[in-house]
Design a protein around this nucleic acid. Structure first.
Length: 451
DNA sequence: GGGGATGATTATTG
DNA sequence: CAATAATCATCCCC
């Protein structure tokens, strides 16, 4: 007991921070050999953490068996107890990091973290909603999906790796500490604290992972989804098709949903792009009709030609190969048809630009035009694989319905903006849907073109 | 590079 | 909700 208190005294002046312990030479008559012993063992205890594992392992046994060890150990425990306060001070419960929370939320929202399938689907859904189209650009979406799932996979793999490493390391450290606690005073609380430190370190690494994952997702998003912001002009053919429809429906340039879908398909753009286009076109046309007059004339001519072609072809078909299948008569290969068309085109263009009115009581059928546009050779249909069938169907459809569209042209020299009312609006014109179902007499096709 | 053309977005309206 | 009007952002030609 006396020895212990003496030790306490001695140790009291010795830092526990692992400095080599320089025991003061005693002058009070205690056995110097004893002191040497204590100095040795103390030194060993204090430096045990500085040694390599093997080294420590080797010395541990000897240390544990040392006759002074239990006494020293108790002393160290007591000292430790006293310094415990300072440790407790730093033992604060860390509040949830707002940055981390933000990252977590974002990853969850992007479908990177969270449930496997549900997450992915959610992303696609939001992406779809953001673009504002249905399955139109499914190619882009699948690409986006693939890339996202790649990111997701990397993220999860890395996260798992980190977690595993963290657990392994924690277990290792805990074992080590427990083991060492036999040699040097380590309280369970300290172990816990150490575990916390380790977890914090690892979670900061995880945060880096989350951050870089977020960045990757952001880049991906900007590349794929926000690519829509990047304006790219439609192809010439698409613009042509849209313009042709527009000018052939100038009296009421409001394509129905079906018409939009068809136009979208023909132009290889989305329905909303068609809507945008018509929205822009209407407003810009209305704003500056003069500027568009030339364009209008051009498309009027085209439309007239194609309409005439349709009629000519129809007539031709009925005369020459009436018993044949209806569509076969409209094939581009038909040379007679092509000749007829060329002739009509010349006549039409001549008459048109000499301003002879009355000529344009032609059926300016939009649908007919659209059908024929795929036939007149200017569009070597690149995007309609089953053009043959489509054409045949459309033509039958067009011929059956052509009359209904003639209102936009009748009695007007070229395409004047007669469809606009006094207020500059189109809305007084025939409603779009009513235009598509007007059966007033099929023979008018012939009578109209007979001029 | 400037400026018009053009596709997309946004606010507003009915 | 679709259409309009204004505006933005980019393309593209000179």
């Amino acid at each position: 007991m006396e020895e212990q208190s003496h030790l306490m005294q001695t140790l009291g002046g010795v830092t526990l921070a692992g400095h080599p312990v320089a025991l003061p030479v005693s002058h009070d008559g205690t056995d110097p050999r004893n002191k040497q012993d204590i100095g040795d063992i103390l030194h060993q205890i204090m430096t045990i953490t500085d040694q390599s594992l093997d080294e420590a392992q080797a010395k541990k046994h000897g240390l544990n068996c040392h006759r002074m060890k239990p006494a020293l150990f108790t002393v160290l425990c007591e000292i430790k107890e006293k310094t415990g306060l300072s440790i407790r001070g730093s033992q604060d419960e860390d509040p949830p990091d707002p940055q981390l929370m933000r990252l977590d939320n974002m990853l969850l929202a992007e479908g990177v973290s969270g449930p496997e399938k549900g997450g992915g689907a959610a992303v696609v859904a939001t992406a779809t909603a953001a673009v504002g189209v249905g399955s139109d650009n499914s190619i882009e979406h699948s690409d986006y999906r693939a890339k996202l799932s790649q990111i997701r996979q990397i993220y999860h793999t890395e996260l798992e790796k980190y977690e595993q490493a963290c657990n392994e390391f924690t277990t290792h450290v805990m074992n080590l500490l427990r083991e060492q606690s036999r040699t040097r005073p380590i309280s369970p609380k300290e172990i816990e604290r150490m575990v916390n430190i380790i977890h914090r370190k690892f979670s900061s690494i995880q945060m880096q992972l989350k951050q870089s994952t977020c960045e990757a997702v952001m880049i991906l998003r900007s590349r794929f989804l926000d690519a829509r912001r990047k304006r790219r002009n439609f192809s010439k053919q698409a613009t042509e098709i849209l313009n042709e429809y527009f000018y052939s429906h100038l009296s009421n340039p409001y394509p129905s949903e079906e018409a939009k879908e068809e136009l979208a398909k023909k132009c290889a753009i989305t329905v909303s792009q068609v809507s945008n286009w018509f929205g822009n076109k209407r407003i810009r046309y209305k704003k500056n009709i003069g500027k568009f007059q030339e364009e209008a004339n051009l498309y009027a001519a085209k439309t007239a030609v194609t309409a005439t072609q349709a009629v000519a072809a129809a007539v031709h078909n009925s005369q020459t190969n009436s018993p044949a299948t209806p569509s076969s008569g409209f094939q581009m290969k038909d040379e007679d048809f092509q000749l007829d068309a060329a002739e009509d085109k010349n006549n039409l263009l001549n008459n048109m630009f000499t301003g002879s009115s009355g000529l344009y009581s032609l059926p300016g059928s939009g649908d007919m035009f659209m059908s024929m546009s795929g036939l007149n050779g200017s569009y070597q249909s690149t995007q309609v694989p089953n053009a043959g069938q489509t054409q045949g169907d459309s033509i039958r459809h067009a011929i059956g319905q052509s009359l209904g569209y003639s209102d936009g042209l009748r009695g007007n020299p070229l395409y004047s903006p007669h469809g606009l009312n006094g207020n500059g609006g189109w809305h007084d014109a025939v409603t779009p849907s009513s235009v598509t179902s007007p059966i007033e007499g099929a023979n008018s096709v012939h009578s109209d073109t007979s001029n």
